[in-house]
């Protein structure tokens, strides 16, 4: 089974995120980028299938040169090959991203394409379903478990989350696209020797044969801080004073 994992580089979510220089999109306040967390979950699912079912794993990102780092991270985690489809720094139009991913998928012919349920910067959740529609492949979202079904390579079983604590077990004939939701698994942390090896690996840039970049279908006009909440909303004083004040308010309101 050949798996292609879509990994996006996003601003480190644990640090401030600020509007970028154009004011139309965003950038990390402290300059640090990371792999979108749900894409790390997708990588982990793929690597478990590599370890247990002999799958091969490739990773692809769409983005500017700096996004090479996220492809290297995927290689260090255990992907066998990495691809970067170039795109500039501006707001990444999801339809264009999906078209580039679809272009690479047509070249690589994976059995299974995994992406995250949502990226932490765009919060769109559209890339997976768009990719599936572009490739005319079946799609299931919010997948939390994947296992090979039987000895054949062409069928898998997956569990996808539904609303209200329910889940659905699926039998999926490959090729297919799945989006991965977070779960109790922990994406692996690459060991140093793998990081060093990944740093030397070639990252393929599938320019040749890639489809021309589709015209953007959305215009991002502005990305900005929301207006601050009214200052009166915040308690003031030292931490201990705030605790006392909050306690008073809870008592007054009959909550405590």
């Amino acid at each position: 089974m050949k798996i292609l994992v879509c990994v996006k580089q996003v601003p480190d979510p644990d640090e401030p995120v600020v509007p970028d220089v154009s004011g139309q999109w965003l950038a990390p306040g402290a300059g640090r980028w990371t792999m979108n967390r749900l894409d790390a979950f997708a990588m982990e699912h793929a690597l478990v299938l590599k370890d247990t079912a002999g799958a091969t794993v490739e990773a692809v990102s769409v983005g500017p040169d700096r996004a090479e780092a996220v492809v290297r991270r995927a290689l260090a985690m255990g992907a066998g090959a990495g691809f970067l489809a170039p795109m500039d720094e501006r707001f990444p139009d999801p339809m264009a991203v999906a078209a580039l991913l679809a272009g690479l998928a047509r070249q690589r012919q994976p059995d299974l394409i995994l992406c995250g349920a949502m990226s932490e910067d765009s919060m769109a959740g559209v890339t997976g379903p768009m990719l599936a529609a572009l490739l005319f492949l079946p799609f299931a979202s919010s997948v939390v478990e994947i296992a090979p079904a039987g000895s054949g390579q062409s069928i898998i079983r997956a569990v996808r989350e539904l609303e209200g604590g329910m889940a659905e077990e699926l039998e999926i004939r490959l090729p297919a696209v799945l989006s991965i939701q977070s779960s109790g698994i922990t994406p692996r942390y690459p060991v140093l020797s793998h990081v060093l090896r990944a740093n030397k690996q070639e990252i393929f840039r599938p320019e040749a044969g890639a489809p021309f970049l589709p015209q953007p279908r959305l215009r991002s006009l502005e990305t900005a801080l929301p207006p601050p909440p009214p200052p009166g909303r915040f308690l003031t004083g030292t931490a201990a004073e705030k605790a006392e004040k909050l306690c008073d308010i809870l008592m007054q309101r009959g909550l405590l």
């Binding site: 079946p138 939390v144 569990v159 329910m166 889940a167």
Partner: peptide
């Protein structure tokens, strides 16, 4: 190509 095998409480 996708078949539901049933809904379960997770």
């Amino acid at each position: 190509g996708i078949r539901s095998l049933g809904v379960l409480r997770r």
